[in-house]
Design a protein around this nucleic acid. Structure first.
Lengths: 192, 192
DNA sequence: CGCCGAGTTGAACTGAATCAAGAAACGTGG
DNA sequence: CCACGTTTCTTGATTCAGTTCAACTCGGCG
């Protein structure tokens, strides 16, 4: 029921209208480790995470995984190249925990924006916020050491830090798992 | 007159309507080296580059410059944290060449979206495209060597490559200018 | 002509990657 | 609830890409 709550809080729609909208979406559960989207797919839906945790990632030529995004509760994940440009996904989306998502047809948010100014504004904010977030991450990768990036990560996502294996955080930060292990050791040594 | 052309191509508005819109914007010229936005400012406008070249960048604690974006002709640049969240800019925007821009009030694009569905769709596409672009850059910084990132840069922006000093490309890529110099040397050695 | 900023080159250094081996933690089935 | 196998994390030794600092070259511009 979280998506309902989310819409109630962020739009002016009546409860009836929201119920009608939700009937157009579908709830679905994915077991830990299962794939929601594979590279090359053209998914028809975006996802709103009700419960659980997803990761969006690519696999490079050497077979290494690079995590672009963790999506915990109340996050949207979508494959924008498919949604807007009808291109095959360059990403995988996988459930890190047992996860319940709402499947949202791509048209859905767009049509909402047309009908309702407040939603257009809200949706715009989401997008801009997302861009800000990506920009910060780029600047950080340009300028900060692996240690600083890790510290930043814990501050931004204290919750995710202990929900995912350490090696995934390393992948998100763009460093080797062994390096992260050493960084953590140094940090705990400093405290004592 | 490029902004006019840009609107003609990307919306269904009549020439009259476009002329009316443009009268709400202002054209302005900035000399090479001058600042359009400073860190801490809350700019009232976004920019559409008619002619010339801008860079958007931050300066870190050690005084080092990190370039987030080059904006040549037909690009938009905006400080999203000010536009949407009324926060002071964390970026500078500076003219790398003598540059002519259209100043666009923040409300402008938003109101266009309300009035005209095709523009909403177009604007959405711009935003999503931008996000895709930032995502690719992040993945690339996670996985690719300095050399590979440079090669990618030349392919993506052959034009910009020879319009800006080499040290700025290094800053964009997140590497030291000396390193870029060496990379270029290696690449030209390989060719022979 | 001489200066000045941009680029190059060299040598030493360092943060992080890699490879390899072992320790801990985890969960799954008996 | 224990035992086993798997996955995750740690640790060490080595290598390497990229940084730093400093000196030098080059091309343009006043």
């Amino acid at each position: 029921m979280q998506f309902q709550q989310f819409l109630t809080q962020n739009t002016q729609f009546s409860d009836d209208e929201i119920t009608k909208m939700l009937s157009l979406c579908m709830e679905k559960e994915f077991k830990k480790g299962s794939l929601l989207v594979r590279e090359g797919d053209k998914p028809l839906f975006s996802f709103f995470v009700e419960k659980g945790l997803l990761k969006q990632y690519t696999i490079d030529a050497k077979g290494k995984e690079h995590i672009l995004l963790f999506a915990p509760e109340n996050w949207f994940v979508s494959i924008r190249e498919s949604e807007f440009f009808n291109l095959p996904s360059s990403y995988f989306i996988e459930a890190i925990e047992d996860t319940v998502v709402y499947l949202i047809k791509h048209q859905f948010l767009f049509e909402l924006s047309l009908k309702e100014e407040s939603f257009l504004r809200f949706n715009d904010r989401l997008l801009h916020n997302h861009i800000l977030h990506l920009q910060k991450r780029i600047t950080f990768m340009q300028s900060a050491s692996a240690e600083d990036r890790y510290i930043e990560f814990i501050n931004l996502y204290p919750d995710i830090t202990y929900r995912v294996p350490q090696s995934m955080i390393a992948s998100y930060l763009g460093i080797a798992p062994e390096s992260l292990s050493r960084i953590r050791k140094e940090l705990s040594d400093k405290k004592e």
